[in-house]
Design a protein around this nucleic acid. Structure first.
Lengths: 366, 366
DNA sequence: CAAATTGGTGTGTGCGCACACACTGATAAA
DNA sequence: TTTATCAGTGTGTGCGCACACACCAATTTG
């Protein structure tokens, strides 16, 4: 906090050596006499030297190439946000010599994923971020990356076979707990609850499973299992008639149904069903601020949406990767985004405003 | 996104002039022939030139001094967060030549405020951020700042007499609405609700008033006034016996009391009371993640805390001010922080982690 | 004992920009 | 005509750092 920053030059002077030598000890490159090294290190400590990362970025004049393998928002608009986050980080890091190449794949088409993953490998990047929507199919590519020594960051879906530099995503289990809490808070017992997994294939099963487990455990922890019986169902909208039929019978079979917890971002599909059937008394909680979900949140057909910070996921993935690649910094093995509880009343503060374009780089320093 | 950035040199070359001339048109300083100016401007447009703000910060080598007039966290720990935000921004901006001087005053002592405000004025800063806890008493200082042409940003409390460069805070009215929603969602009618204003002096009345208004309006908008009668009370903990007596009689007088909305950060004081009296059925919603509040949130004595992003308030105030002072950028007249709904289940994601120290400056550019 | 090697160190240049300064040619004042 | 004036422009230096290179002395090699 004391006025002027200390420069490499200052410590060189104080140590009675040249800036070159100081540079060598800072980056431990080249040869430096042991006693000199220690002396310089000590002075760096004493003077509380912090490199001017701005100048560093200028001087280094290196370029880094990163790759981002993520789903194409055209296929599923959920991915608009992560992509925007990636692009924001890209922009922020541009003048640090970082370029990010995006490889977009169709999240409903394995072949597309594989093709793009191959392209990513061929890109020979200094680091990559990946959203491994296809769990099993992505494993060989992680193997290849590991072989090549390319650092990778994973976001949105976790993977246990390979340890990435970092996982950025949300705590699925806790989000389930949270949904449980919200129902418990809002619904007097006894009351049946439905966990609906909509439109997700087996590849993502662990995803949804974790959410369901958290949800169930909320009631177990509070010894409420009997007052809040839970029913789970997998629904598929590929056949809309069947989808509606399933819902009809679920409602018929569970007269005390008080709430539906949708573990995917498709809560709107149930909201739409309920709107048509003029059902008002069933509470609905889902994930993600998709336009369709927002519509029903406004209508109060959906009570709460849990926001997993999709924008932040994209942003931090790239940002952390860059920090590691450029600065060799140790980055957190895992970063969970906040689980925002979004309602009609506070939704405005969570909607993206990517057009805002801060001018001063901030948050601390390159 | 195309590989290399275009430099001032590139556009100079393309325009057939020197970099000096380009520099002149960019900063419109000095004399430039009109036709040349236009030509350069056109090329800047065409080549989509974006100044390398990193290099700019280095080259400019200016220093800016900002002042921050904020309450002393020692007197009220709420202010730990805003101060941390200010300090984080300070750190982030340090290498851009920005220094922030803090003037801390005791938020319960007008004289202390006035003394620090005078010191702030004497500091002759390039810009200041102020949290005008003492509404009336702060007015003359805003007048003085305006006279001196010093830009100022206000945060946490709004002021209508003078227009600051920007107001950073939260939308108090909406936060009241939100609290209303949460009670309505969780409490079956009929049910009496208490709005408790604790430990705040008249100076801040508008604050609390806005929250109460939002709260009441939630029920008006939903035509629920009769099912959810609302009682308001001002409580003062300076005399604890009286405080407890007031609560006792409020509870006695309102047998259907189902929820208490505390408009200040002192929800813990009621939680503590309820704990002593072994009252469990009354729902409690308050503001701010103070340690004491967190304690009772864990105990589930408090159901929800509304978080107003105090850290972000401090951070963005300084950050925006710097953007304006350094770059002359137009900054938003008003920035509301998100109103986070915090429960026992998701509280971890909202607790501060200021120790993390990003290395790459980000978010976009100086 | 000269030449080659190697540990250890200093110097110089460039990154993209800001800014002070020097310079040119034309016009106005002397 | 000479000199001052000034609109308009180019050049050079420095910001703090990274990095290539040059350099010197103490060794080692032949």
């Amino acid at each position: 906090m004391s006025g002027k920053s200390v420069r490499i030059k200052d410590i060189a002077q104080k140590a009675g050596v040249s800036t070159g030598t100081v540079d060598r000890v800072i980056h431990n490159r080249g040869k430096v006499a042991e006693d000199v090294r220690e002396k310089v290190l000590k002075i760096i400590e004493e003077m509380n030297y912090e490199p001017n990362l701005i100048a560093r970025a200028l001087g280094a004049n290196k370029t880094y190439s990163l790759g981002a393998l993520i789903p194409d928002p055209q296929a599923d608009s959920y991915w608009l946000e992560p992509r925007a986050g990636v692009e924001k980080a890209e922009k922020a890091l541009k003048h640090y010599g970082v370029a990010v190449k995006k490889y977009l794949f169709d999240p409903y088409d394995v072949a597309s994923f594989q093709a793009q993953a191959l392209a990513l490998l061929a890109g020979a990047h200094d680091g990559v971020v990946i959203s491994p929507v296809f769990y099993r199919e992505s494993l060989p590519y992680f193997e290849a990356l590991q072989q090549a020594g390319t650092p990778f960051v994973i976001f949105n879906s976790q993977i246990s076979e390979y340890t990435p530099l970092s996982y950025i995503g949300s705590d699925l289990y806790t989000s389930g707990l949270l949904a449980g809490k919200l129902f418990h808070y809002g619904l007097p017992a006894p009351c049946t609850l439905l966990v609906a997994h909509i439109d997700e294939r087996a590849a993502n099963a662990s995803h949804l499973g974790k959410k369901e487990k958290g949800f169930r455990n909320y009631f177990v922890q509070h010894h409420l299992e009997e007052q809040y019986p839970i029913v789970a169902a997998e629904l598929d909208r590929s056949n809309m008639a069947a989808f509606i039929g399933q819902l009809d019978s679920l409602i018929e079979d569970n007269p005390r149904l008080g709430g539906i917890f949708v573990t995917t971002s498709k809560a709107y599909s149930i909201a739409s069903y309920m709107e048509q059937r003029r059902i008002k008394h069933i509470r609905l909680i889902g994930y993600d601020l998709l336009p369709q979900n927002l519509h029903y949140l406004q209508q109060e057909q959906i009570q709460f949406l849990i926001n997993q910070g999709p924008f932040g996921q994209g942003y931090w993935s790239v940002y952390y990767l860059a920090e590691h690649v450029i600065l060799g910094k140790e980055i957190p093995l895992m970063k969970y985004m906040p689980l925002d509880i979004v309602t009609r009343e506070n939704v405005n503060y969570y909607l993206p405003e990517h057009d805002e374009k801060p001018l001063l780089e901030h948050k601390v320093s390159l």
